[in-house]
C-alpha cells in the first residue's frame, strides 16, 4: 500500500465525476449524443438555472423535502420507540416481534395497491409509504442494538445503584446508539427510494412531479436536473447522518480521530 498525500486524498475522489462530465460534454459537442437521450451538460445547466430563476425548483424541492422529513419523523419515531420497547421488555418482544418480523418481509412498495385503496393517491398515501419504508430499518436496528448491549455493563450498572430509567438512560440507550445510527442510515436510503416511487405514482408538486411532467414534454434536460437533485438530497442526508454519528458516537473507537 502506498501512502497518499493529503492533497491526493482531497483530489482523487473528484477525478472520476469531473472526468465523466468532461467526457459527456465532449461527446455532446461532437454531436454523438442525441439531445433526447442525453442533452449536453450546458443545456442541463441552463434548464437548472431556469428552474431556479422561476423559483419552481425550490418549490418542488421544499415539497419533496417536507414529505421525506415528515415520513422519516413519523415512521422513524415509531420504529425507534417500538425497537426500544421490544429490546428492553421481554413481554413486548414476545407480543410484537414475530409479527413485525413477518410484516417486514413484505417490500414496502408491494403495499402500493393497498395504500392507494386505503388513502387514494394524495399526501397521506405518500407519507404512509415513506413512514413504512423508514420504520423497519430503525425498528430492527434499535431492537438489536438494545439487545446487544454488553450484559456485563448492565450488571455493573445494577450493582452501582442504577435501575429503571437511569439504567436505560446511562447504559442501555448509549450502548444501543451505534446500531440505531446504522438503522438511521438504512432508513434514509429507504426514505429516498420510497419518496421517488411515491412521487412517480402521482403527485401535483415535488421533484417527482417535475420529472414526470418533463418526461411527457420530452424535456430530458429537466428530467436529468430532477435526477441530480435526488442524488444531491441523498448525499445531503448521508452527510447529516455522518455528522450525527460523529457527535453521538464521539466515544466510539471507530469515530475517534487517528
Amino acid at each position: 500500500m502506498t501512502h497518499l498525500s493529503r492533497l491526493q486524498r482531497r483530489v482523487l475522489p473528484w477525478v472520476l465525476p469531473i472526468g465523466l462530465i468532461v467526457l459527456w460534454g465532449a461527446l455532446s459537442s461532437m454531436g454523438w449524443l442525441s439531445t433526447r437521450i442525453l442533452p449536453s451538460p450546458q443545456s442541463v445547466a441552463r434548464a437548472g438555472a431556469h428552474l431556479i430563476e422561476t423559483g419552481e425548483l425550490f418549490r418542488h424541492l421544499a415539497v419533496s423535502g417536507g414529505r421525506a422529513i415528515a415520513g422519516l419523523l413519523i415512521g422513524g419515531s415509531i420504529g425507534f420507540t417500538l425497537g426500544l420497547l421490544t429490546g428492553i421488555s421481554r413481554l413486548a418482544e414476545e407480543l410484537l416481534d414475530s409479527t413485525l418480523q413477518m410484516v417486514r418481509t413484505v417490500p414496502n412498495l408491494a403495499m402500493i395497491p393497498l395504500v392507494i385503496l386505503w388513502f387514494g393517491i394524495g399526501e397521506e398515501a405518500k407519507l404512509f409509504l415513506i413512514a413504512l419504508g423508514v420504520f423497519f430499518p430503525l425498528y430492527l436496528n434499535t431492537y438489536h442494538g438494545v439487545r446487544l448491549v454488553d450484559p456485563g455493563l448492565k450488571e455493573m450498572g445494577r450493582v452501582y445503584g442504577l435501575s429503571g430509567w437511569e439504567l436505560f438512560r446511562q447504559v442501555q440507550l448509549p450502548g444501543a446508539m451505534p446500531s440505531v445510527l446504522v438503522g438511521l442510515r438504512f432508513a434514509l436510503g429507504s426514505m429516498w427510494l420510497t419518496l421517488i416511487a411515491a412521487e412517480a405514482l402521482a403527485a401535483e408538486r415535488g421533484i417527482g412531479y417535475m420529472t414526470t411532467t418533463a418526461r411527457e414534454f420530452m424535456q430530458t434536460d429537466v428530467v436529468i436536473v430532477g435526477t441530480l437533485l435526488y442524488a444531491l438530497l441523498g448525499k445531503l442526508a448521508d452527510v447529516i447522518a455522518r455528522m450525527l454519528e460523529k457527535r453521538l458516537l464521539f466515544w466510539h473507537p471507530n469515530f475517534q480521530k487517528v
Binding site: D150, G152, L153, M156, R158, V159, Y160, G161, Q170, V171, P174, G175, M177, W251, H252
Partner: peptide
C-alpha cells in the same frame, strides 16, 4: 441487591461513552 456492597469485576466494565 446488597446496597452496602460495590463490586470489581475481571474486566473494568467502564462505560465507554462516559
Amino acid at each position: 441487591l446488597n446496597g452496602e456492597a460495590r463490586m470489581m469485576f475481571q474486566e473494568a466494565r467502564l462505560l465507554p461513552w462516559k
